[in-house]
Structure formats: structure tokens, C-alpha cells
Design a protein around this nucleic acid. Structure first.
Lengths: 107, 107
DNA sequence: TTAATCCATCGTAATATTACAATAAATTAA
DNA sequence: TTAATTTATTGTAATATTACGATGGATTAA
């Protein structure tokens, strides 16, 4: 096995899981924080900032990009990675609804 | 490799990643939603509700419990799983801060 | 006690993830 | 053109995840 049974879950559950999974790694959290901090970021800076090899950073950036959380635009020799505001706000709202749907009562 | 370099990240980045990872699966999202919906839940109900085998549900419940998101109390023959309000609110606040730290400006 | 019920654990196969060296591709500088 | 710079891709080893059959442990019912 080792294969998530996507077909038995709702579209919403699957897409939320994809976005959360993209964020669920300390390196990718650090990357997002850094992009937010400098408000436009370049891969080389991340390699210096974090303690990971360049191919590893590039791979993490690719995963964040595939999930739609960030977008990259070529800027001469380097690439400028930024937050995708649409996806970011959608996820923020979706998580807000999710976390607020819990009303402590039992246990 | 295949081993996350935990030591190069902050405590906050690592713990947030652990909680997000616990949530980052459609089955576990569905489990949390179901627990919230019925406001106190039992594993057997989940096996009927979701389309996964009992050991698989049990394994997912264990991961949610290990992350601290839920807690289980024995209730006769069955086990009552509930949201852990402390961890839930902590994560909600942490995510709130994270998502609100982004101020759309560039790109 | 015996049977039934509920959940956890073990073992395992299939697949995914993480990290990095080596290398390629693309752009700019000389 | 050649060299330098920056990022992407490929290949690969180590480890983690997902799912489930089989089985075990604990509690309740007969």
C-alpha cells in the first residue's frame, strides 16, 4: 500500500490536506517565514539563511510551488519567490473556519 | 537520507511542523471534523463513517494523539476520543499569527 | 467461564519523503 | 566565445508513511 485513498474523501478534505502537507516541514515553514519577512525572496538567500544544501532548498521550493502556496518569477540570473496571495488567503480562511468550528464541551 | 534535519530549525518551527503534519492527511482531517461534529467520538463510529479499515483508523488516531491534537478516554468497552482544547487553541493562535504576518506587497 | 465486542499492536508490502552529490540549463559578465 | 553565477534536475540512499490482515488484550454480556 503506502497510497492514500484519495477517492473516499471530499474534494475539500483532499485539497486542505495537500496544502497542510506542503507546510508540514520545518524547512518549508522557515522558507515561508523568510519570504514573508523580506517580502520577496531569492533561492540563494535561503541557502545561506537555512542550513540545507541548494538542491534540498530547490526541492522544498518546488513543493511549495506545486501546492500553489508560492510563485516564482525569473529575475535575471536568479528567481524571485513570493507568496501566492490568493491561495494564502483561501487557506487562511479555510483553516479559520475549521479551527473555529470546534466548540469545547465534552471531556 | 530521508531524515529531517530537526536540529537546524527553531523549536517553534519544529513543533508547528509536527502539528501540521498530523493534520496533513484527508483521513485525519475527516476524523477531526467528525469528532468536532458529534462533540465526542468513538473509533468504531469512525470505521463506519470513513471507508478505511479499523487498524488504519486506529493508526491515524494514534498519530493525532501523539501530536497532542486529541485525547482518548476509556469508556467501558470503547474509547472516547476528543479534541485537546489546549493544543487546539495553541495551534489556532500560532497559525493565526503566521497567516496574518503576511502583508501582500510585491509580485 | 465463555462468548462477544471494541480497540491496539504487529508484521508487512507498496509508496512517498528527505537530503545531497553530480550535473545540466539558463542567464549575465568579461 | 568563455567564464561565472544561479537555480533546476537527476540519481540515489536512508527513512517515513499508508493501508490492512492477523492477532492480542481488555471489558462487558450471557
Amino acid at each position: 500500500m503506502g497510497l492514500t485513498k484519495t477517492e473516499i474523501f471530499t474534494e475539500e478534505q483532499n485539497s486542505l490536506a495537500v496544502l497542510l502537507k506542503a507546510m508540514a516541514h520545518p524547512a518549508r515553514i522557515a522558507i515561508l517565514q523568510q519570504i514573508i519577512k523580506v517580502n520577496a525572496c531569492i533561492c540563494g538567500d535561503l541557502v545561506d539563511e537555512l542550513g540545507l544544501a541548494q538542491p534540498t532548498i530547490s526541492q522544498h521550493l518546488k513543493e511549495l510551488k506545486n501546492a500553489g502556496l508560492i510563485q516564482g518569477t525569473i529575475e535575471g540570473v536568479s528567481v524571485c519567490y513570493c507568496i501566492n496571495p490568493i491561495v494564502w488567503d483561501q487557506l487562511k480562511d479555510q483553516l479559520g473556519v475549521f479551527f473555529n468550528s470546534y466548540n469545547p464541551a465534552c471531556c
